[in-house]
Every structure is written in C-alpha cells, then in structure tokens.
C-alpha cells in the first residue's frame, strides 16, 4: 500500500504525462495540497518509488530557463498505476460513510 505522499507524487507525475519532471511535479503537489514540498522529500521519494518499480526516471534535455541544466524526467510504470489505483479505491471505499462525503452533520469527539 502506498503512503499519502507517494500517492500524491505518482498522481502528480501521471497528470502532465510525458512532461513530468522534478520541478513540475513539485509545483503540482504544492498547488493542489497548498503545502510546501521540499526537494529532499521529492527526490528521496522518487528514488524509493523507482526502486519499487513504480516509477522510471531518466535525465532529459537541458533548457535555457533552467540555466542550461538537465531535467530528471519521471514516468509512472504500469505497476505504479496499479498501486495508485489500489490506494485511490481504498480511500474512496473507506470514505463512503464519512460525514464530509455524505453531507450528514456530525462531529467526532
């Protein structure tokens, strides 16, 4: 089972398609979670997911807006897609009765 940040990273990677790389994934996560995402957390998680076979990375081309530096391109593997789907379905299933999903008033003390 994926962790929360691992799921966010895989989903953010899958969104831009073939153009996913470090800075774009980081921006996507920060924009959608409204939380800061450190480069350390990003790259160590990418490495961990790559070791598990859920992601594949390679060095891409250098661009002028990056000061001539290369991108580390990231792509989700089929195993990664399956793991993210499992996580999403588990979250969806477990959330079905929750008050913030059903719209029932109620507070858990």
């Amino acid at each position: 089972m994926l962790g929360e940040f691992e799921y966010l990273l895989i989903t953010a990677t899958a969104s831009p398609g073939d153009e996913a790389y470090g800075a774009a994934i980081r921006e996507e996560i920060q924009k959608n979670t409204r939380r800061s995402c450190s480069i350390g957390a990003l790259y160590t998680t990418i490495d961990r997911l790559e070791q598990k076979g859920l992601l594949r990375t390679w060095m891409g081309a250098a661009t002028p807006e990056r000061g001539g530096r290369s991108k580390r391109m990231v792509r989700v593997t089929s195993k990664g897609v399956a793991a993210a789907k499992d996580f999403y379905q588990a979250v969806t299933r477990i959330s079905q009765g929750a008050s913030w999903v059903t719209g029932r008033a109620g507070e858990v003390s």
């Binding site: 790389y21 790259y43 060095m59 290369s70 580390r72």
Partner: peptide, 14 residues
C-alpha cells in the same frame, strides 16, 4: 553529479 544537475535546474526554474 546527475542529482546536482536536476536540483539546480529545478531551483533555477522555480
């Protein structure tokens, strides 16, 4: 080296 390249590019871009 490769990580340095990617990180510096990301920081420059951001």
């Amino acid at each position: 080296p490769e990580e340095r390249e990617a990180v510096l590019g990301d920081l420059r871009e951001a």
